[in-house]
């Protein structure tokens, strides 16, 4: 990579660390069940409130990797937070790949509360950094994003570190 070929503009550099408008994620019985089913979970705590409560949870448990469904408003163009969340930039690459997903959870130790149906989570995404690399796919732009998830009580319940590859 040489500086002359860089696709990282001053505008992009200025956006690093700036939080994008917050999005609200609803976590409900139906979307937890739907996600659990789509993954193939067989544990009743992801489907049945009584079964979840019998195991000590407040309600149906949000399956691992599920942080709710963004509220969709037609025409708003608002996407989900995470790997593609927040602000995008025009770069001369046509193809996009998800490079990686990493969730960190902050339960109250050791067997404290976890994210359950009924929670409302505010997701704030920022760009953590840009990198350029050259590999078998040719030159690529790697965008790292960080999303912070705060619940209805103001507690940070999760952080997500996402990697997006454009080439």
């Amino acid at each position: 990579m040489t500086t002359a070929e860089s696709v990282i503009s001053d505008e992009m550099r200025a956006a690093i660390g700036v939080e994008h408008a917050a999005g609200v994620m609803e976590i409900e019985n139906t979307n937890c069940r739907m996600f659990a089913r789509s993954v193939g979970h067989t544990d009743a705590i992801f489907y049945d409130e009584a079964a979840a409560k019998a195991r000590g949870y407040r309600g149906i448990v949000a399956p691992p990797g599920f942080l709710g469904t963004p509220i969709f408003k037609p025409g708003s163009g608002a996407g989900a937070p995470g790997e593609t969340g927040g602000r995008g930039f025009a770069v001369p690459y046509k193809r996009i790949l998800n490079g990686g997903t990493d969730y960190e959870y902050f339960p109250d130790a050791p067997d404290g509360d976890v994210i359950c149906a009924g929670d409302t989570i505010t997701a704030r995404t920022k760009i953590a950094g840009f990198e350029e690399a050259s590999g078998s796919l040719g030159p690529m732009l790697i965008t790292r994003r960080e999303t912070t998830y705060t619940n209805q009580h103001g507690k940070v319940v999760a952080k997500m570190y996402g990697t997006l590859i454009q080439y």
Partner: peptide, 19 residues
């Protein structure tokens, strides 16, 4: 996530998983 959740069990907690 399913794998690590099953390993943690109901009394354990998943703290972090990334790929």
């Amino acid at each position: 996530g399913r794998l690590v959740f099953a390993f943690a069990g109901y009394k354990g907690r998943v703290k972090k998983f990334g790929v």
